[in-house]
Nucleic acid binder design. Structure first.
Lengths: 138, 138
DNA sequence: CAACCTAATTAGAATCATTCTAATTGGCAA
DNA sequence: TTGCCAATTAGAATGATTCTAATTAGGTTG
């Protein structure tokens, strides 16, 4: 499964005309089936010890490319570094105010508080409508 | 109304034991009935020309204090600087992917897309469950 | 209402996250 | 195989926020 997800993501890059480099393979493989919503920093630290050279800018560049081809989503939902999510079907997020960690929540209309992680102290539920405003569309 | 809101916010600070300084009065007055969700930078630039001295750190400190006493909310919903919201009754937000500006949306269970700003191109609706996770609670 | 205690303010440095730069490397199409 | 141009690199630059250490000023007390 992990390999299949990674290959799908790489295919999306290839189809959009991005070159498949050793660094991109490594980053995509690391992110593909990681449900922990890692930060760029975390990915960089996991990959640096490996044989292939890896710079910090490349992690950001590759994540931006993946976002562009809709192979991952950047989650900026709280203070702290942006987190990256390879799961592309619609779902919601549980966010910790303190540590910033995020957990996926399956998409469903109701009930609101079902299936929260064990021991999570819910404070608020917030809806965000994302898109592009009229002035920015011109 | 503006004055009343500002005074309520200052009262909340006072009641929590915070001192009421000229800088805090200025920041609170500026934020109180501003529906534009200003950033710390924007508040600083609006206030700097005034007679009272104002440092950047003070803007952040005061906004942190206001958040602590539940007189405002910090909104970190996208890349770019945190925005601050003095409206404390439950509501949702419309966020522009491009410029980061935010608009309030009245709280209602349905329908999803009602009352969006004129010309806003909706891309996704996201639910965020906020709170504190089990490990952070200890 | 003066003095004091302590919190708040200040400028500037430090830190963290991210993006940029300019030179080098390497996919991959012809 | 060659060459073009995108991708990579280290390090500097930028932007947002927090920290630091010294000074100032609320507001409580005598």
């Amino acid at each position: 499964m992990a390999i299949r997800t990674a290959e799908r993501m790489l295919g999306q890059l290839r189809d959009a005309g991005f070159k498949i480099t050793a660094q991109r393979v490594a980053i995509v493989t690391e992110l593909a089936d990681d449900p922990s919503h890692p930060t760029a920093q975390e990915l960089y630290e996991r990959l640096r010890p490996n044989e292939a050279a890896m710079s910090f800018a490349t992690v950001y560049n590759t994540l931006a490319a993946l976002e562009q081809v809709h192979a991952c989503t950047a989650l900026a939902l709280s203070q702290g570094p942006t987190r990256f999510d390879p799961k592309m079907d619609p779902h919601h997020h549980v966010v910790c105010d303190q540590c910033g960690k995020m957990v996926d929540l399956p998409y469903s209309e109701s009930p609101e508080a079902a299936a929260l992680p064990e021991g999570f102290a819910l404070r608020s539920i917030e809806k965000i409508y994302r898109g592009v405003c009229a002035p920015c569309r011109t």
